[in-house]
Design a protein around this nucleic acid. Structure first.
Lengths: 220, 220, 220, 220
DNA sequence: GATGAATGAGTCTTCATTCAT
DNA sequence: AATGAATGAAGACTCATTCAT
């Protein structure tokens, strides 16, 4: 009776620990459970060619199953995308919540949060790429759900900025919401220029981005 | 057979003065020259629904012409997109070049350049939206051309950062190329959150973004 | 492999007493034996959406079982339809035979037979609806079987008409077979206009139809 | 600009005089205008296999065109069906209106109307078959439109019955609306038993049906 | 310069049925 | 007796593009 993945839970059951999809081997297609395989191949293909340019046929071929199998687990192509979003959002929200509630100075927490989101965005670079290009291709209702989750994430981050301003450690001028949009623009943009085989490791980029953010906030 | 607009030059001829597409009139479709109308409606529709989700039929209906007319002026749907890119790139490159060569301190030039690209991105918000979502939907060769133009733009900006670092006005630590990617991520992201009817004017956002960038670079 | 119900006999065994489907309870799905429940829900859904528009999935969901269960009792979707036909045909044939052999004047017998088929058609309105819309969706061989049973029914009715004409009670002009087609057209059509919550009871319609038939036959 | 057939007008333009589809040659497919050919083949196939069992592919193959051509003229498969309905309804409504307004006694008018609808139903037997089997496969809104037109037809016929009852020529007992449903049931049923190569001509059936109707109404 | 009918490959999705368990 | 994952063929519909006029 557990047909069709609901957007809340993971489709296949397991907790798929550390399923970094950024590295993207080109379609092994025959290992692991079917829903996971479908999700992994879909992620890879959506990142590579875009959501609209990736046909369901291509996905099932890459996963080594038939279309019927895909529609047994996912209600629609759109559902696949939603599931991919859900996975990333859950991961990043959990990590941010963990960092935001630590008993350390804001400065430190915001620096860590910034660095962390850069690292996980790079580790899941395919998801990151998909996120901004394809959000508007979700059905309106699913888009709304994703935006709501995303907003919650942003609000947590913004609260850190506000805390720093109340503390007096940060300059009072910048509007916290603009700071958030400013920084996450940079993060979301990673997918368009970062390459795993480039000169910089994820940690190096994270350190620099975190540093740029902090300097833009701190009192001189 | 020699009837099509070459993809490099502007299709209709003129310099389309002040063709701000951000405000988005909802498809009057009967004023002005045919190629301009097509380009304007295509821009609006691509921004609203995405390139792949916009059919040629919708574009010609919005522009009040027939398909034959579109294919008379543009070689393909893809050509329309390329033309939109060209327009925005030319505009921003010209403006940056003008600002970068002014005889003022780097600090001032970079602040102005940053503010200016925010303002023109907001004024042409539809183009901005299209830019990131649809790049990969261009044909490989056109993509290459756009990327090359974009790179030139980034290099000019990066040169300003480097100049500031050589000057000693900017902190030496940040890698100039990362600064550029950091800042332009924020700019490109404008399309996903800025709304003309929101609480902030283009100039306010420009001032804040420019300020954040400067503070992230200046020596404390 | 010998596990499927043969298409001739009733699938579940018993005589399904008073299984009037016309009233159409809206899919409780958990009372009674599985095959009866499947048949009842299938009848309701076929009448509502048509045979081709009703998926096996919908039937089993309405009946609260799984597909495996359906295919355990019925060889195919087509078998379900055939079973529905069988049920209604058996019922009406039995009743007509009983009436036709009574020791009363033809006039009376034909009036009763006409009224009776109207009442039972209305009581099983879902079956009536299905009968005409879906005959051609049966497999050719099953179609042939149903037609044969139907023909037998019509012949019994026609014999009454002929008897009335030989008697001299009925006008000699009408061709008995045309009379049968004339009248049963009206009966089959009930499904397209009769509603249980309309102004007329089944008995009122039966009385009128019977009256119209008799007047069309009787000598003036 | 005249894309897509509107439900009011005939798709191809012409008035297709006397386009009797009942005889049904098996798919010449290359004569006449494209929309007419599509409509003719669709009518034949829908009558033969039912609406749901006829694929768009089969229709276009029979008509000797491609799917694109079909969708150039008709918005959907559903539209084809609606167009077929419109054609028949227009024809029969016109004829009934003409007969109903003649300056002859009701008895005569109703006899002629009854005979005429039988003849035209037989001449367009494919349409007649389709009418009852496939009505519920139309989209709800189109169904509503067809029902409204049908109701108007029935009301005109019912008015004749009422007139005859007021006149005193008809028995007062039968409810006029039931008479209409009674008779049109018979007419609609023609498609399930009448064959052009059977023993009866359309006119013979028409005469008998008309006679049966009249005798059921006239005072004894 | 412009039309619009026609193409044909491609899209996502549905579904009756099977089979290992 | 019953499950439910998986199949594979078929479904309706879309769309960028061409070409005779």
């Amino acid at each position: 009776m557990a047909r069709r993945a609901t957007s809340g839970g993971s489709a296949g059951g397991g907790t798929e620990p550390g399923a970094a999809t950024g590295s993207g081997a080109s379609g092994s297609g025959t290992t692991g459970a079917v829903p996971e395989r479908l999700l992994a191949e879909a992620t890879r293909l959506f990142a590579e060619h875009g959501y609209d340019r990736t046909s369901v046929q291509e996905i099932v071929e890459a996963a080594g199953v038939t279309k019927g199998a895909l529609y047994h687990y996912f209600g629609s192509k759109d559902d696949l995308l939603h599931e991919i979003y859900g996975r990333v959002l859950r991961l990043q929200t959990e990590r941010l919540d963990a960092i935001a509630t630590r008993p350390t100075p804001v400065t430190e927490r915001i620096a860590e949060a910034a660095a962390d989101v850069v690292v996980t965005s790079i580790q899941n670079l395919d998801d990151t790429k998909i996120f901004f290009r394809s959000m508007h291709q979700l059905s309106p209702e699913k888009q709304k759900a994703v935006r709501a989750e995303r907003r919650r994430y942003h609000e947590t981050f913004r609260a850190l900025v506000e805390e720093g301003q109340r503390d007096g450690r940060f300059r009072p001028e910048p509007r916290p919401d603009l700071v958030v949009d400013f920084f996450f623009g940079s993060v979301h943009h990673l997918g368009t220029w970062y390459h795993a085989d480039g000169p910089l490791t994820a940690e190096q980029v994270a350190a620099e981005f975190s540093d740029l953010l902090l300097h833009s906030l701190l009192r001189p």
